[in-house]
């Protein structure tokens, strides 16, 4: 497939933060991948392929030794990347290689300890240089968010926060106030990993959140089928993030890169929002 350089992203400004215009334009499907999984070159190849296929946005994770929110699939992806020598410097190199290829919107997801050790200021400065849309730390709740959020404003990087099924209304209000970029709604009580059936009770949360913010609402965790994606996107969400179901295809095809990539593309194609 021929890759076309997309035109410069037009951000919408909400408050003093820039927001991708997707919510106002179209519904988005966002693949999640671990940078450097299974190794640097294959990871770059996979990411280029899904970009070529026209995905709207990417969410990319930095491998961490102890990811507590992740199920076995993403744990294994973290370990694979680390065992092939992935580290922060190489993750930024990889992002740089991706950026040479495409300016597709990219959000990062990573444990706060990696940012803390790199230096929060330095990390966000790198993100700014790489035109990273947002940085989400699953282990930074509101209570610990001050420094990160303030420095992110300085470097013009969005910091989305997670809302879960156990988040109270009062707290949802605060999260909507402080979040930038988008709101990440976790669809279930639990860790990442594909589920056969989805309990759609979180759709109620979407209504609540929609009443409180104009920010796009992305839903993640457990989603693995195109019917899940369609149902969620037609019921108020602006984006759906799918990780484990894609990463499973890496895991299954470690011996055969071509098969791995073609299975990923076929799967991603099924989940993508057709324009």
């Amino acid at each position: 497939m021929q890759y076309k350089i997309p035109s410069k992203i037009q951000y919408k400004i909400i408050g003093n933060r820039k927001v991708l215009p997707n919510r106002f334009k179209k519904k988005v499907f966002i693949p999640f991948l671990i940078l450097g999984d299974p190794d640097y070159n294959t990871s770059l190849e996979i990411i280029k392929s899904v970009i070529d296929h026209g995905v709207d946005e990417l969410e990319l994770g930095f491998a961490f030794s102890d990811p507590i929110m992740d199920g076995i699939t993403i744990q294994k992806a973290n370990n694979r990347a680390l065992s092939f020598g992935m580290n922060i410097k190489k993750a930024f190199d990889l992002l740089n290689d991706i950026r040479k290829y495409s300016d597709v919107p990219i959000s990062l997801m990573l444990s706060f300890n990696l940012i803390y050790n790199y230096g929060i200021d330095n990390f966000l400065s790198e993100c700014n240089k790489l035109n990273i849309n947002a940085v989400l730390c699953p282990d930074i709740p509101l209570e610990e968010s001050n420094e990160l959020v303030n420095l992110a404003i300085k470097h013009d990087v969005n910091i989305p926060f997670i809302i879960s099924l156990t988040t109270s209304y009062e707290r949802i209000k605060k999260i909507c106030d402080i979040s930038s970029g988008y709101i990440y709604l976790v669809s279930l009580l639990g860790i990442t990993g594909k589920r056969e059936n989805i309990n759609y009770s979180f759709l109620e949360q979407i209504k609540l959140i929609r009443g409180l913010t104009e920010l796009p609402i992305y839903v993640g965790f457990g989603i693995s089928k195109s019917e899940h994606v369609k149902h969620i996107l037609t019921n108020g969400a602006d984006g759906v993030i799918v990780g484990s179901a894609i990463i499973n295809l890496i895991d299954k095809n470690l011996e055969n890169n071509q098969k791995m990539i073609s299975e990923i593309i076929i799967f991603v194609d099924k989940l993508m929002v057709k324009k």
Partner: peptide, 23 residues
């Protein structure tokens, strides 16, 4: 949280949102 969560700069609640209500 009602109590001070920190011991000087140490401690805190670096946890996923799903755990906050439980804590």
């Amino acid at each position: 949280m009602k109590l001070n969560t920190k011991f000087g700069e140490f401690g805190g609640v670096y946890i996923p949102e799903m755990m906050v209500a439980a804590m």
